[in-house]
Design a protein around this nucleic acid. Structure first.
Length: 603
RNA sequence: GGUCCGGUAGCUCAGUUGGAUAGAGCAUCAGCCUUCUAAGCUGAGGGUCAUUGGUUCGAAUCCAAUCCGGAUCACCA
């Protein structure tokens, strides 16, 4: 279906037409037509900026504004009701019936915006954890961002595959295995009563403790530190284990599978709690050998070159980058090698038009190089690669460091948020009329909503600072604020016996009096939703939905304060306001749903 | 050192291809619950948009230089 044209784009269109009609002999650059929302201190709804045209048309802004305004009102009598020219700005007033038309067309639709299918297959890879430690706060930003981005792209008509590439092999995995063998005494998640990913993570920490001790002992014995770091027994053991793993040693593989299975069970619990899912899992243990063939082909093509010791490189200096290693001298692959292979694998698996990687900005260079190499190799997957780069989450004291124990654990954070929401709900005395089970759901809805919103509300590109001491607020620019507005609406609708997908009887509504300012502001914002949704996809920025939803909730609260819905001045007003709040609730739901945030009907 | 990213109110952040007197939230202060949920609303104070120069009718936004902070440039992953 063809989406209805937004008001701003309609205004742009008629303005372009008007300019061409008024100045048929002048070739005007119509892309300069800018339509903004009129500032509250002026009368009008939308504003056309006149400055871009005054020079070319040789008119004073005021004269041009008058001309354009007269023409627009005259040629679109049902659309504009009037205009005002203020120092170079043409402020246009829109006919209330346009707003009414939007409301009646939108009310009751749960799927507010039906975007035309793009026919594009898009993969979003996110989360992509290591199996040697539990998820931490930084991972949460990745997970929420990836999930939200996938949903936003889907809502914009793309066919989306959510993928997770699990880093389940390598020296870091062997470290927790070695430490577990040495120090766990056979402990399992069951016997230790610890979530599997946490148990394995504990032994990863343990490895570092033992390692430090061993290095210290060697140094005390007169060895140089750099040498000691290589000679420490536990490090040698880990490296030996990696060799055994790669050779397929049965005992090693069994332990590896056993410990990984603990981690997966733990992750599953966390993912489920977070409300995120994946369509396709990739495991590095299956993909780490990929890419060598691609490198071979690159050598044949002459895109890559071999050094004396047999290592394979690509020269990117012409692109302002460095030389990059793709195969070691002994023929084994490096990180980049497998990433080349995985990129091609993904492409072949799904015939992707676009492949999005949600990865922190510390890997900007890596991703730039990855794409560039694939392009130089002429791989068809290359151009579709997009790095959705996001800033790291830092503590006031700086980056989280697992070795210094400053990492904020994801599971702890979730639990903390849920108990915070419980505390606040009880404090506000809002638990009446709920069963125990309902309260449990409510606390999760509020707690997780707050957490997700907190991490999604900032532009992904920017790094963010999280202060655990202050925890996360449930007032102001938060999911709670939006949830509360939604609950208020649902409460009214319950009392009025109107449902969110009901649209009975609204068609025949005729306006008898002007839409009031507080009403107008809300309708105006609601009408902009579909363009916000598009922008969120185009800019790969779900935070736009946070800002927008908060703004709508704010406008609703002011509106709610100024006007009674149930006891409206007359039946027309009541109908109008019911439509407005139904669409408000559906808009908030739609937007928050895409971010994985649920809105309660009571709170 | 090369490349890239960032610097907006005390704090955390918005600020659409350049547009009107730079906006929110938190915190501070002052008001608002016999009326649909006060997790709310209304108002006040708070700014050299890092600095300097340039581009023009107009710059937080574009360009250049400088200062500060961060990331990255491994036969690590």
């Amino acid at each position: 279906m063809i989406p209805a044209m937004t008001l701003t784009s309609r205004i742009k269109e008629v303005t372009k037409q008007a300019l061409q009609t008024l100045y048929p002999d002048i070739d005007i650059n119509l892309s300069l037509v800018a339509v903004n929302q009129t500032k509250p201190e002026f009368t009008g709804d939308y504003t056309v900026v006149l400055f871009p045209f005054v020079k070319q048309l040789r008119q004073k802004p005021d004269v041009l504004g008058k001309q354009l305004g007269d023409h627009l009102v005259a040629s679109n009598p049902g659309f504009f009701t009037g205009f005002e020219v203020v120092s170079g700005f043409l402020n246009l007033s829109i006919n209330d019936n346009e707003w009414l038309g939007f409301l009646t067309a939108t009310v009751g639709k749960e799927n507010l915006v039906e975007k035309t299918a793009t026919g594009k297959k898009v993969m979003v890879e996110y989360s992509s954890p290591n199996t040697n430690k539990p998820l931490h706060f930084g991972h949460l930003r990745n997970i929420f961002l990836g999930y939200a981005m996938a949903e936003v792209l889907e809502a914009n008509g793309n066919d989306v595959v959510k993928a997770n590439l699990i880093n389940d092999r390598g020296i870091h995995i062997c470290k927790s295995m070695i430490a577990w063998q040495r120090a766990a005494g056979g402990a399992t998640p069951e016997t230790a009563n610890v979530k599997g990913d946490h148990l394995v993570g504990d032994y990863y920490v343990k490895f570092n403790d033992i390692y430090k001790e061993e290095v210290a002992a060697l140094v005390a014995g007169g060895m140089e530190e750099a040498v000691a770091e290589k000679e420490a027994q536990i490090m040698k053991d880990a490296q030996e284990m990696l060799v055994k793993w790669e050779a397929g040693d049965q005992e090693t593989r069994e332990l590896w599978e056993r410990m990984n299975s603990w981690v997966y069970k733990g992750f599953e619990v966390s993912y489920k709690k977070l409300g995120v899912d994946f369509d396709k899992m990739y495991y590095e243990s299956n993909t780490y050998l990929l890419g060598k063939e691609i490198v071979e082909r690159g050598l044949e093509k002459g895109v890559l070159f071999k050094k004396e010791n047999g290592s394979v490189w690509i020269d990117l200096t012409a692109d302002g980058l460095d030389e990059k290693l793709l195969l070691r001298g002994d023929g084994t692959s490096v990180y980049m090698t497998q990433d080349l292979g995985t990129a091609v694998l993904k492409y072949n698996d799904f015939k992707l038009d676009q492949s999005i990687y949600v990865i922190a900005d510390e890997q900007n260079y890596h991703m730039q190089v990855l794409k560039l190499i694939l392009q130089k190799l002429g791989e068809p997957c290359a151009d579709g690669i997009f790095h959705l780069s996001y800033g790291m989450v830092e503590l006031p004291s700086g980056r989280m460091k697992s070795r210094e124990g400053t990492v904020v654990d994801a599971d702890d954070m979730i639990d903390e948020m849920i108990s915070l929401s419980k505390e606040q709900t009880e404090q506000a005395g809002k638990t009446e009329g709920f069963t125990e089970d309902e309260l449990k759901v409510l606390y999760e809805t509020i707690g997780l909503g707050a957490l997700k919103f907190y991490l999604l509300r900032v532009d992904p590109k920017k790094k963010m600072i999280f202060n655990p001491k202050e925890s996360i607020d449930l007032h102001g620019f938060t999911a709670t604020f939006i949830q509360y507005a939604h609950a208020r609406i649902c409460s009214i609708l319950r009392k009025e016996g109107v449902s969110l997908n009901g649209n009975e009887g609204f068609d025949s509504l005729k306006l008898k009096e002007a839409i009031a300012p507080a009403e107008k502001k809300l309708v105006l914002a609601l009408e902009q939703y579909s363009s916000i949704l598009e922008a969120a996809a185009e800019e790969y920025n779900p935070s736009l939905l946070c800002n927008y939803s908060f703004h709508v909730a704010q406008l609703f609260n002011s509106f709610y304060d100024a006007h009674s819905i149930s006891k409206a001045e007359n039946e027309e007003k009541k109908q109008l306001r019911l439509m407005m709040i139904i669409i408000t609730a559906n808009t908030l739901r739609h937007a928050m749903n895409l971010l994985g945030i649920r809105l309660p009907e009571k709170m």
